[in-house]
């Protein structure tokens, strides 16, 4: 058994419920193979760095689970077949990654203790996305439909 993580991108035009059901379906795939889900996160709609199947954004779902390799194969097979999945990636978790997460959390806590509550990181991400969008839309405005 190893820890794996899988990220997949769901087509953005689905409704929230449809997206959620879809995510649940794949949670089910992991569950039915005697694998343990460690984390199941919805990252929400994010900008894609490039166009995938003609979409510029997608809904990210993140799984972290403890499983046999066969589970990953099966999950990937299902993801490949499904038409509403734009992209996915599965990675065997690096043993050093856990230590790194702890370290990061500690640093964040320290920063906050030092009186730098700042803005939510997600806010910053959103701002960055917005700026990128704006720049790109402006650039594309001139030669649209390329």
């Amino acid at each position: 058994m190893h820890e794996y993580e899988t990220i997949f991108i769901i087509q953005p035009s689905l409704t929230d419920e449809e997206t959620e059901t879809l995510a649940k379906v794949f949670e089910g795939v992991v569950a039915e193979h005697k694998a343990t889900m460690i984390k199941s996160e919805r990252w929400g709609k994010k900008r894609l760095a490039y166009r995938v199947k003609n979409f510029w954004e997608g809904t990210y779902v993140f799984f972290e689970y403890l499983a046999e390799p066969s589970v990953v194969t099966e999950l990937e097979r299902r993801l490949r077949i499904h038409e509403n999945i734009l992209k996915w990636i599965s990675v065997r978790k690096d043993p050093r990654a856990a230590a790194e997460e702890v370290r990061k959390a500690a640093r964040l806590a320290k920063a906050q203790a030092a009186g730098m509550p700042g803005r939510d990181m997600d806010d910053r991400d959103r701002d960055r996305d917005r700026d990128r969008d704006r720049d790109r839309d402006r650039d594309r405005g001139a030669d649209d439909g390329r």
């Binding site: 760095a49 490039y50 997608g58 990210y60 992209k87 990636i89 990675v91």
Partner: peptide, 11 residues
Amino acid sequence: KRARNIALLPF
């Protein structure tokens, strides 16, 4: 390279 693969970063 991994981040590029899931469209978090551009190629």
